[in-house]
């Protein structure tokens, strides 16, 4: 081992961080080399000078007390935070249930039950979804694309267990666009599609199971107008983004025919 290598390792040697083999090598070199031994001597002196108690800053007693009291404060506030967390949790649950109750009451009291009875509520939602879906997917709007009422009517033969009446009102600007088969209200229904300018109207038809007619009932959902009625033992639901006046006009036309 030469001087350069020894002096590279001398700090590790002084600090007792060398492995046994290197330790021995450094020791052997220093036995023969006064210069390196002197470096070692300097380092040992320096080390002993640094390791005197007077260089060590002991913490004052009052600092310990200060820290302990600030820790106790921290513990208290941590507990308060948690207690608040718990309280907040219960408060949230309480507030949420109160809100749900309030909404339920509001719905119960203010929804015009005369116009949409509870059963129709679900059906209306189903119809809105179906209407949206029919417009969303390309080619989904109609299974039979025809403005010819006979073509559309005969298309339904054998597909549904009733014969919907199909009529084109192109002269009143409600053009028959086509028809498709739908599944609504737990049964197969006929869906007729009419067009007025850029608006499409879905008209769903299926047997009501009761003879007689009911008045038109109008509702609005998600921006769509819905009109439904019963006539000659058939349920009719018309839905469109068309304004309600024109949709009523359409409903009257259908009822009259």
């Amino acid at each position: 081992m030469n001087c350069q290598r020894t002096q590279e390792l001398i700090h590790g040697y002084v600090d007792g961080e060398l492995d046994l083999v290197r330790n021995l090598e450094v020791e052997q070199h220093m036995e023969d080399c006064r210069a390196c031994a002197r470096v070692f001597g300097n380092q040992t002196t320096l080390k002993s000078m640094l390791r005197t108690d007077s260089l060590y800053h002991d913490a004052p007693d009052r600092l310990k007390k200060r820290i302990q009291s600030s820790l106790r404060k921290e513990v208290k506030s941590e507990m308060r935070r948690r207690a608040f967390g718990w309280g907040w949790g219960w408060a949230t649950i309480g507030a949420t249930s109160a809100l749900i109750l309030l909404i339920a009451l509001a719905v119960w009291n203010f929804v015009p039950r005369s116009t949409v009875p509870a059963g129709d509520e679900l059906l209306a939602q189903e119809i809105v979804s179906d209407h949206v879906r029919s417009l969303q997917l390309p080619g989904h709007l109609v299974d039979v694309l025809s403005s010819d009422q006979h073509t559309v009517k005969t298309w339904f033969d054998g597909k549904v267990d009733f014969a919907p009446s199909v009529k084109d009102f192109a002269d009143q600007d409600f053009r028959l666009y086509g028809g498709r088969l739908e599944y609504l209200n737990n049964r197969s229904v006929a869906a007729l599609v009419y067009q007025r300018r850029l608006h499409y109207i879905n008209l769903y038809i299926w047997p009501s199971g009761q003879a007689g007619s009911t008045a038109e009932v109008t509702t609005q959902r998600q921006g769509y107008n819905l009109i439904h009625w019963t006539s000659s033992g058939m349920n009719y639901w018309a839905i469109s983004d068309l304004n309600s006046v024109e949709l009523h006009e359409f409903a009257r036309l259908i009822r009259q025919e």
Binding site: C3, Q4, E8, I10, R38, V39, G41, N42, T45
Partner: peptide
């Protein structure tokens, strides 16, 4: 890495 200069002898006494 700087190599220790070996001429620290007088400083050793001062140290």
């Amino acid at each position: 890495d700087e190599i220790e200069s070996t001429d620290l002898d007088p400083e050793s006494l001062l140290l």
